[in-house]
Amino acid sequence: MNAQPTTVGTKPAARRRRSGLFSDPLMGYLFTLPVIVSLSVFLIGPIIYAFFLSFQSFTFLDPEGAQFVGLDNYLKLFEDERFHRALFNTSIYSLGVIPVQVSIALVLALIVNSKIKGKTFFRVAYFLPTVTSTVAVSVMFLFLFKKDGLLNHFLGWFGIPARSWFDDVTFALPSIMVMAVWSTVGQFMVIYLAGLQDIPDDLYEAAQIDGANRWQQFWYITLPMLKPTTFFIVVMSIIGTFQVFDQMYVISGGDGGPLDATLTVVLYLYNKAFKDFEMGYASAIAFFLFCVILILTLIQRKFFGEEMRM
């Protein structure tokens, strides 16, 4: 059989030029006007301001005393060992979390989109971790993962010695990664679920007539049709994981301990800005991080191909 995924997947791109995407500047600006205004005033303005700060020795306590220091803040990034540690931790975190997160989300979405009994219950159940606020989730996990907590009781049955997961130099970061996957999968599941609902049923019907089995349907119809969704999820995941802050802030009590094992870039930035009063340096860290995320996103776009043209 020859269930070419391209029938629907790429056709719009070809047709787009013919009819759909005709130029309509007035409508284009009208539709985007609220967003343009809101973005410029409330985000781009402050971002530009912060960008200027990154070239200064600056603290909000004494804005008049700011000094222009050129690229010093950026150069300092190369020597700052704690920053390197933070960048390393963040990368590990991101590399570990994204693939697991995305695959589990897809599997769960497929499950709750199938014809199982108690669909609504499972949807709510899988989504529960996402609705709970980060602080509450962190508290819950501190609870479950502590030395005499539920997890260690459970592991004890298999002869695994109890340890204090979040305070262990080796296990603190992986434990937070587990927590992050647990708490964000529901969100991406819902997006995948909406994506799955958008796939017209006649595609599957046509494939069935062609004799495609379930697996082939998944591989040649579902996955290609979910491409925009997957692209979206991966990009959001990169942004989210590289900016991870809340969990570390709560669990390590703000210092990224034990021994910097949970120090992330944004946590470091935050401490520099608000505890050490080095807003200029903190801004430089922010824009460095921005560049890292931007580059990863662009690579991502290449990976997903023309489909995601911008």
Binding site: L39, L269, S283, F290
Partner: peptide
């Protein structure tokens, strides 16, 4: 731009905002 503004960590624009 819509994508890019998401990539700037919010902590840095808290005060300007």
């Amino acid at each position: 731009i819509v994508l890019a503004v998401m990539m700037v960590p919010g902590q840095v624009i808290l005060v300007p905002m």
